[in-house]
């Protein structure tokens, strides 16, 4: 990068504690899915690292200051990209399933377990 290095750009550092491993549950789930799919031999760890660094580079190119807080967003995007490229799941199915979950949340009264409807599920 040809830009001037901003010496004040490092974010505040959680020096006093080891800090939270995951900030939100979905980050932990995305992490665990990746490790499990690797253990199931669906991709090598080098393929994973390449996918993740590509995704980070893409986000930076699109203006993400990339201060670490968006890390698991890049992680998730890399995982989606890798599993669709490997034809483990297809992109359309992912999109449909996401819509099905939105409908499930909107349909479920607050406080009750949210479940996918059979029809949405099958579609």
């Amino acid at each position: 990068m040809a830009t001037v290095v901003d010496l004040d750009a490092l974010p505040a550092i959680p020096r006093d504690a080891e800090g939270p491993v995951f900030r939100e549950p979905w980050e932990a789930q995305a992490f665990a899915l990746t490790v499990k799919l690797h253990e199931a031999c669906l991709f090598t760890w080098s393929e994973w690292a390449a996918a993740l660094s590509q995704e980070i580079a893409r986000a930076q190119a699109e203006g993400d200051p990339d201060l670490g807080a968006t890390y698991y967003r890049h992680w998730l995007a890399a995982l989606e990209r890798l599993v669709t490229a490997k034809r483990v799941v297809d992109a359309a199915a992912l999109g449909q399933r996401k819509q099905a979950w939105i409908q499930a949340y909107e349909r479920t009264p607050h406080g009750q377990p949210v479940q996918l409807a059979i029809d949405a599920h099958r579609r």
């Binding site: 899915l33 799919l37 998730l76 599993v83 799941v89 399933r97 479920t108």
Partner: peptide
């Protein structure tokens, strides 16, 4: 009255996880 819809990344993870569980991969 309905449950709060999770954030976009949370929904995408749920989508991916539920598909992978159905396929028996995780």
């Amino acid at each position: 009255h309905h449950s709060d819809v999770p954030s976009d990344p949370a929904l995408r993870v749920k989508a991916l996880e539920s598909l992978l569980v159905e396929k028996g991969l995780v």
